[in-house]
């Protein structure tokens, strides 16, 4: 088991390394060929005061006059030594900004992730158990509506209803405006977190609920549920013993594999709510041509999604005996030894 697991992790490590190199290279080429001029992005509005010679000097200082390959190697070796560069908009190391923004986003994404997972799972199970009834149709209709709703539109709707009309929550941002940083309370932060988290989780629910519903229907129609019923099991005991585990495993896996959607959703939700997280930083970096920050974010989001998928795979490997136990004749080979 340990041997198998370490081999699995080793292979995944290699895969991650190749993925990162490929992503970095493609992204580097894209940025190189984009209309973003790093010198202009760096200098910004003072561009008029900078002459062509000065521009050339800055470009030479950064190595922009060298061939693309050399530039990539320069950048790559800096990354490998842990230096992600300095953000042009914030004038601070990229790693610091990502770290700080990630904490904000993590709270948001984690809340949304847990909420959508739990609510989606329950809705899916209930819909499947009551398949064909009005309750099932209601849940299904709700999920289909949600699944076809764009995140930003949902965000705006939530904003209008809860922030503008009902005035229950602040309109946006991570902390109240006009308050000193040290005066911001935890309650303030939570209040600002609720609407974006709700937006993000409402949309995540549909995915989990519909998948869980389908899986639960399959499980309920399975031979082993029929046999369990024939042995006199029913109701909650039947669900607890044979339904839950068989449905929970794919649901949990799905939820971890949905990290990419979570990140993508966070980008839009944070933008709508002006919430200072990773997503908003990504949009800023893109719009204002902050190449170092954008590159740092690409690497970070790649890692984030990759780790989500890795956890999903690991859960299967650890929890599902069919994956863990190896082959069908494990019993015999073990006995021979």
């Amino acid at each position: 088991m340990v041997k198998k697991l370490s081999f699995f992790l080793f292979m995944k490590g290699i895969r991650m390394a190749t993925l990162l190199v490929a992503i970095c290279f493609i992204f580097f080429l894209l940025v190189k060929n984009s209309p973003i001029d790093p010198v202009q992005a760096y200098i910004g509005a003072d561009m008029l005061n900078v002459g062509p010679e000065q521009r050339a000097k800055i470009a030479a200082y950064w190595g922009l006059d060298q061939p693309v390959g050399v530039q990539f190697m320069n950048w790559g070796s800096a990354i490998l030594s842990g230096d992600l560069g300095t953000s042009m908009i914030y004038r601070r190391p990229v790693a610091d900004i990502i770290g700080e923004r990630f904490i904000n986003s993590l709270v948001l994404m984690l809340t949304a992730w847990v909420l959508s997972g739990v609510i989606g799972f329950i809705l899916g199970v209930v819909a499947a158990m009551k398949k064909g009834t009005w309750l099932d149709r209601l849940i299904k209709g709700y999920c289909y509506t949600l699944a076809s709703t764009p995140t930003f539109w949902m965000g705006l709707l939530v904003l209008i209803v809860f922030a503008v009309w009902l005035k229950w929550f602040p309109v946006g941002m991570g902390v109240p405006a006009g308050v000193l940083a040290e005066d911001v309370t935890l309650l303030d932060r939570i209040k600002h977190l609720i609407l974006p988290a709700i937006t993000l989780s409402i949309l995540g629910v549909a995915n989990v609920a519909l998948h869980t519903r389908q899986k639960m229907i399959d499980v309920l129609q399975s031979d082993y549920i029929l046999f369990a019923r024939a042995r006199g099991e029913r109701g909650i005991v039947l669900f607890w013993r044979h339904g839950l585990r068989n449905v929970a495993l794919p649901a949990i896996t799905l939820q971890f594999a949905a990290f990419s959607e979570l990140f993508g959703g966070a980008v839009l939700a944070e933008q709508v709510f002006s919430y200072p997280g990773l997503g908003q930083a990504t949009v800023e970096a893109g719009v204002r041509g902050d190449v170092p920050l954008l590159l740092g974010l690409v690497i970070f989001s790649t890692l984030f999604v990759f780790i989500g998928n890795l956890i999903a795979d690991l859960i299967y490997l650890v929890l599902d005996p069919r994956m863990r136990g190896g082959n069908r004749y494990a019993f015999y080979s073990r006995r021979k030894k």
């Binding site: 029929l226 585990r245 068989n246």
Partner: peptide, 22 residues
């Protein structure tokens, strides 16, 4: 419902009738 599994028992066709995760 009261009798199944207690007075009347089924011996099913194949291993698929056992819960794969138990």
């Amino acid at each position: 419902i009261a009798l199944r599994g207690k007075e009347i028992a089924l011996v099913p066709q194949s291993v698929n009738y056992l819960d794969p995760l138990m």
